[in-house]
């Protein structure tokens, strides 16, 4: 069971502000869904089964050729100081 406190911690890890009633509702729904996910436990999988992953030869990767992007990349930033983007202070 995922407790309300655990949901609060998850919400903090994900930086999503939630009120207490929201946390309670989510805890309830999340438990139901996680219980459903738990059916994966019954699936007997040997260590020989590789998790699904795509792979490619390294030669297919990008050449080291620099290209400057032409458009103004700051057009969507709202808090600026000169060409710096403003952010909250850390700490």
């Amino acid at each position: 069971m995922v407790s309300v406190e655990e949901v609060r911690h998850l919400a903090h890890l994900a930086r999503i502000g939630m009120k207490d009633e929201e946390l309670r509702l989510y805890a309830e729904q999340i438990n139901e869904i996680i219980e459903y996910f738990n059916m994966l436990d019954e699936l007997e999988i040997g260590n020989d089964v590789e998790p699904y992953r795509m792979s490619r030869g390294y030669k297919e990767m990008r050449d080291d050729i620099p290209v400057a992007f032409p458009a103004d990349m700051l057009s969507n930033a709202k808090s600026m100081k000169g060409r710096f983007i403003k952010a909250p202070k850390m700490g």
Binding site: S79, R83, I85, K86, A87, K89
Partner: peptide, 11 residues
């Protein structure tokens, strides 16, 4: 860092 009210980011 102590006197400033915000951080400035250069990416």
């Amino acid at each position: 860092i102590d006197t400033s009210n915000y951080a400035l980011v250069d990416y």
